[in-house]
């Protein structure tokens, strides 16, 4: 019952967040200097030409009317037309979103269990060699941009040792799952970035849990160490860790943009960086909205998962 009201309230919040995000996205694009008309014409256009294009594109109408029209279109699956290709954005966006989701979900599927395992291992003997190795690795990986790790990976595994393709360039309509070898390096880079943060969060939670009275009771009862750790301590560490994973998915999305650009992977991030170099503002606007929505939904799912994992609120 508690769970259900919580989920409902969280869903309402998500809708509010999405409305706020769409307003802010629209606001940044339309209120800041440099609008679509100047992007179409370039810097050399005369004010009269800009005015004519603005009128033709409907940019001279009031902001609120244009906002409602844009949001209405988005709700019907119409994101407008790309300035670069002149085609509707929605179909391309959908395909790219799918590709990015594949990359992101594989990363999550590998990184979440692995980083929790590493965090628990490090917490078992804080200050010991294994803990220090894991923690130093985490600090190093956390402080490096994804493309630095990615470039070194390309150099090692695709140029010096030609094992894997250094680029994931493929036909936009091809399913990336048919080319698993092209996914290895991008996923590896994203996993390393995620391991750095989540393993440290798990470690901190685990050290705290292992020092608590209920763990001492369990140990004094004579339970084997692994049972104390996995059955008594871990269930209490998981919920905050999962929440943290949800918040971290914002970084994963940022990382996706960089990694997709680095490996020329046909995802949403690469679509956006492409659009940036052509100043294709409608496409950027659509991409930002979809990314922010994905971020909000990811946070919601993580909160729900944390709730379901919380032994105190189950049942």
């Amino acid at each position: 019952m508690i769970a259900l009201t919580f989920i409902l309230r969280r869903c309402v919040m998500l809708v509010l967040v999405l409305v706020a995000v769409s307003v802010l996205t629209f606001g940044i694009v339309n209120v800041l200097p440099g609008d679509v008309a100047t992007a179409v014409l370039g810097d050399m256009a005369s004010p009269e030409m800009v005015e004519a294009v603005r009128e033709r594109m409907g940019l001279d109408r009031p902001l609120d009317a244009r906002y409602l029209e844009w949001v209405g279109g988005v709700l019907h699956g119409d994101f407008g037309r790309s300035l670069q290709h002149g085609q509707p954005i929605a179909p391309m966006l959908l395909g790219r979103l799918g590709n990015s989701a594949i990359l992101g979900l594989i990363t999550l599927g590998i990184a979440a269990p692995l980083s929790i395992a590493l965090g628990v291992l490090a917490a078992l003997r804080p200050g010991h060699l294994l803990d220090r190795a894991i923690s130093s690795f985490a600090v190093g990986a956390h402080a490096m941009p994804e493309y630095v790790i990615g470039l070194l990976a390309i150099l090692c595994f695709s140029i010096w040792l030609p094992l894997l393709p250094g680029s994931s360039l493929m036909d936009p309509n091809e399913n990336p799952l048919n080319r698993p070898e092209a996914l290895v390096l991008p996923v590896g880079v994203l996993v390393i970035g995620m391991l750095a943060v989540i393993s440290q969060v798990t470690r901190a939670g685990m050290i705290q849990a292992l020092g608590s009275p209920y763990v001492r009771t369990a140990t004094l009862k004579g339970l084997p160490r692994w049972k104390v750790v996995l059955k008594h301590a871990l269930p209490n560490v998981l919920p905050p860790t999962v929440t943290e994973i949800g918040m971290y998915c914002g970084y994963v999305i940022g990382g996706l943009v960089v990694v997709e650009t680095l490996f020329s992977y046909a995802g949403l991030g690469q679509m956006m960086t492409n659009a940036v170099s052509y100043r294709d503002i409608p496409t950027i606007q659509a991409g930002v909205l979809v990314v922010a929505a994905a971020y909000g939904i990811g946070n919601l799912l993580a909160d729900v998962a944390a709730l379901l994992l919380n032994p105190r609120l189950r049942g």
Binding site: V21, G34, I281, V291
Partner: peptide, 24 residues
């Protein structure tokens, strides 16, 4: 704080990217 929440509901890199693209 609601305005702050809205700013925080964008992944950092995406928000920064959008703002720089629009400002030049």
């Amino acid at each position: 704080m609601r305005v702050m929440d809205t700013l925080m509901s964008f992944p950092g890199l995406i928000l920064a990217m959008l703002v720089v693209v629009m400002l030049g």
